[in-house]
């Protein structure tokens, strides 16, 4: 399971970086989305992957006992997903506006403010 999730994170990050390096604006946004998903998975797996061990206190206990899945990273990742979703939505609106203003989907055409 750990190996699999590591491969998935790596593949998502690699795909994200590949898309980031393309010339198209749209692909850049897709790259950022992939990269943030891979980071979400890093945070998600930060608490350790423990299947079938919910963090529920037994009825005769006062505190959590034994081997349980850490619920905190899941709460964190939920927050991160929501934030990421908002940012991606904003970026899409921004490239739509940029496309309307410049008529290009090409990053090379966005050089006017550099010099």
């Amino acid at each position: 399971m750990n190996t699999l999730i590591a491969i998935v994170i790596g593949a998502l990050a690699a795909g994200g970086v590949y898309c980031l390096l393309r010339r198209s604006l749209m692909k850049l946004i897709i790259g950022i989305a992939l990269l943030s998903q891979s980071v979400n998975l890093i945070v998600f797996s930060a608490g350790g992957l423990k299947p079938a061990s919910p963090p529920i206190i037994e009825s005769d206990q006062q505190i959590l006992q034994g081997n349980y899945a850490d619920p905190l990273p899941q709460a964190l990742v939920l927050t991160a997903i929501v934030i990421g979703f908002g940012l991606i939505a904003f970026s899409l609106a921004l490239i739509h506006q940029t496309y309307r203003a410049t008529g290009h989907d090409d990053i090379q055409s966005l050089k006017n403010t550099d010099t």
Binding site: L35, L76, T98, T102
Partner: peptide
């Protein structure tokens, strides 16, 4: 144009920060 560059680089840096925080946790 300026906003696009600013947004793109900052989103990447936020992703890296979050990854760092995750590893630290």
């Amino acid at each position: 144009e300026g906003a696009f560059k600013y947004v793109a680089i900052n989103l990447v840096s936020s992703a890296l920060f979050l990854a760092g925080a995750g590893l630290l946790y």
